[in-house]
C-alpha cells in the first residue's frame, strides 16, 4: 500500500519527465538555423517594409528565442511543470507590458 503513495520522483506525475540526452546532431542543426535567422533579420532591416519592419525583427527574435529555449535549454523534453514555469515568466512580462501600456496609450489618445 505504501508503494501506491511512494513516488519520490513523482514518476506518475505530470511534473515528471524522463531524462533525455540531446545529441550533437540536433545542436548543429539548431546552430545553423540560428545563424540563418540572424542573417535574415539583418537583411530584412535594410528593406523598407513600413510598420512591418519592427514586427518582423521582433518576430524573428521570438522564433530564435523559442528555438533556443526548446532545444538548447531542453524545454521540449522537460515536464509540463517546467513548460508552465517558462510560460508563466513570459506571461507575467506581458502583464507588465500591457497593463502599463493601458496608461501610456490612453494618456493622450492619438499622440502615442
Amino acid at each position: 500500500m505504501s508503494s501506491q503513495y511512494h513516488d519520490p520522483a513523482n514518476v506518475n506525475n505530470p511534473e515528471h519527465a524522463e531524462h533525455h540526452i540531446v545529441g550533437p546532431g540536433t545542436y548543429i542543426a539548431i546552430y545553423v538555423t540560428l545563424l540563418v535567422f540572424t542573417g535574415i533579420t539583418v537583411g530584412a532591416a535594410f528593406i523598407d517594409l513600413g510598420v512591418l519592419n519592427p514586427i518582423i525583427a521582433v518576430g524573428i527574435a521570438c522564433i530564435k528565442a523559442t528555438i533556443v529555449i526548446l532545444f538548447f535549454m531542453h524545454v521540449i523534453y522537460q515536464s509540463k511543470l517546467i513548460k508552465m514555469t517558462v510560460g508563466a515568466g513570459f506571461f507575467t512580462f506581458l502583464i507588465l507590458l500591457t497593463m502599463t501600456l493601458t496608461d501610456y496609450i490612453s494618456r493622450a489618445w492619438g499622440r502615442w
Binding site: 540572424t38 533579420t41 539583418v42 532591416a45 535594410f46 519592419n53 519592427p54 525583427a57 521582433v58 524573428i60 527574435a61 530564435k64 528565442a65 533556443v68 529555449i69 538548447f72 535549454m73
Partner: peptide, 19 residues
C-alpha cells in the same frame, strides 16, 4: 543560454531599428 536570448532580442531592437 538565457544570456544569449537576451542578446537575441537586444540585437534587432538596438541595432536594426531603421536601416
Amino acid at each position: 543560454h538565457f544570456v544569449d536570448i537576451v542578446w537575441i532580442f537586444l540585437f534587432p531592437l538596438l541595432y536594426l531599428i531603421n536601416r
